[in-house]
């Protein structure tokens, strides 16, 4: 175990997350059970309502902790870099334990899982938050079932994330050997990339075509979002939400490919260095563009969740205004990210 300020802070957040997540799971289960009972007394109903308020408060707290723990993970990994002489960036830290036979062999898998679980937990917490905002504007609380299920899923994701991060912090890693400390060396071999599918995609399309495809798809997505938003304002039932969501989901791997293959080497001014992790210490301004891309995709996902989960007569107008706001924010995020990326790549 490596003890530094970030490890202590991460450990503290992990413990808090685990406790709150357990409470959220327990209360969500209790409320779901009490909802199934049709013959509940007024006292039981009041108790259930009070539990729901406590659950909402705890979920808000868990949302805040999940948001904090996401960047904290990368700050923790960055703080581990000087502990191994061969490691030059977070990529090297993620490779610690590869080829090991002890407990350290789990470290790369744990980091990979954390990098997927953290955004997933934030996304599900966002779904809960928008549903809860809509629910607060209603008289009868028609979205209670969906909200409780979302809170339960959020609790499970946050608990899993906390357990995995706790395990990552505790497993000894200082004595682990390093196979390669930089994505430019060793494993990357001739292609120069640590990710095979990216190398295939980029070599197949070529950097120019990848750039053209990235800009066209993202511009089309922004236009699609604005058009869809306009149609939603004019008409009650506008089809095409699935198409917009599909566009955002398909644009995500293309954006990742562009950022790794074209943007990162250009911004870092290292043509053969395809590493997003290096942007954190060397070009933190570019990280904001990536955050905006993530927020744009999440906003489209949340708008879709509102469309499908808040589909009842009482919430129709509230859901429409929430969806409108989310689509507008999503489009603004995409535009901001595109402007930043264009400036970063072409000024470098």
């Amino acid at each position: 175990m490596i003890l530094n300020a970030y490890a202590v802070l991460s450990g503290f957040v992990v413990v808090l997350c685990a406790i709150v997540a357990l409470l959220v799971i327990g209360l969500a289960c209790q409320n779901l059970r009490s909802r199934r009972r049709a013959d509940s007394s007024p006292t039981e109903r009041t108790e259930s309502e009070n539990r729901f308020y406590l659950l909402s408060l705890l979920s808000t707290w868990l949302l805040g902790l999940s948001l904090i723990s996401w960047p904290l993970l990368y700050l923790l990994l960055q703080s581990y870099v000087p502990h191994w002489p061969g490691v030059m960036c977070i990529y090297g830290v993620t490779q610690i334990g590869v080829g090991s036979s002890g407990a350290g062999r789990f470290l790369p898998g744990l980091i990979a899982a954390l990098q997927l679980l953290k955004p997933a937990a934030v996304f599900v917490s966002g779904v809960w938050w928008v549903l809860y905002r809509i629910q607060r504007g209603t008289q009868t609380g028609p979205l209670m079932g969906q909200i409780l299920l979302t809170q339960f899923a959020f609790g499970v994701l946050a608990l899993t994330d906390a357990v995995i991060e706790g395990a990552y912090l505790v497993i000894p890693k200082k004595e682990e050997f390093l196979l390669t400390g930089c994505c430019t060396s060793g494993v990357s071999g001739l292609s120069g990339r640590s990710t095979a599918w990216l190398a295939t995609l980029s070599d197949g399309l070529g950097p120019t075509w990848l750039s053209v495809a990235f800009y066209l798809v993202n511009l089309a997505l922004v236009l699609g979002l604005w058009c869809f938003r306009g149609c939603c304002r004019r008409r009650e039932n506008t089809p095409g939400m699935s198409l917009v969501l599909l566009g955002a989901v398909l644009a995500a791997p293309l954006t990742v490919a562009y950022l790794i293959e074209v943007a990162a080497p250009a911004v870092l001014r290292l043509p053969y260095h395809h590493c997003l992790y290096d942007l954190i210490p060397r070009a933190p301004d570019m990280v904001l563009a990536i955050v905006l891309f993530v927020m744009g995709t999440c906003c489209v996902g949340w708008a879709s969740a509102v469309r499908w989960l808040a589909d009842c007569p009482e919430t129709k107008n509230l859901a429409r205004s929430e969806q409108d706001w989310l689509l507008s924010t999503g489009a603004s995020c995409y535009v901001g990210a595109l402007v930043m990326t264009i400036l970063e790549v072409h000024l470098a």
């Binding site: 030059m88 930089c182 430019t184 060396s185 870092l268 001014r269 290292l270 053969y272 260095h273 290096d278 060397r282 070009a283 933190p284 301004d285 570019m286 904001l288 563009a289 901001g336 402007v339 930043m340 400036l343 970063e344 000024l347 470098a348």
Partner: peptide, 26 residues
């Protein structure tokens, strides 16, 4: 202002700093 100003300032600051290795930047 942030979206336009940050890349300009960031790029300018990076150009001021010493250049590292042309392969991995160290």
């Amino acid at each position: 202002l942030i979206v336009i100003g940050l890349p300009i300032v960031g790029t300018w600051l990076r150009r001021q700093s010493d250049e590292g290795c042309a392969l991995d930047g160290i």
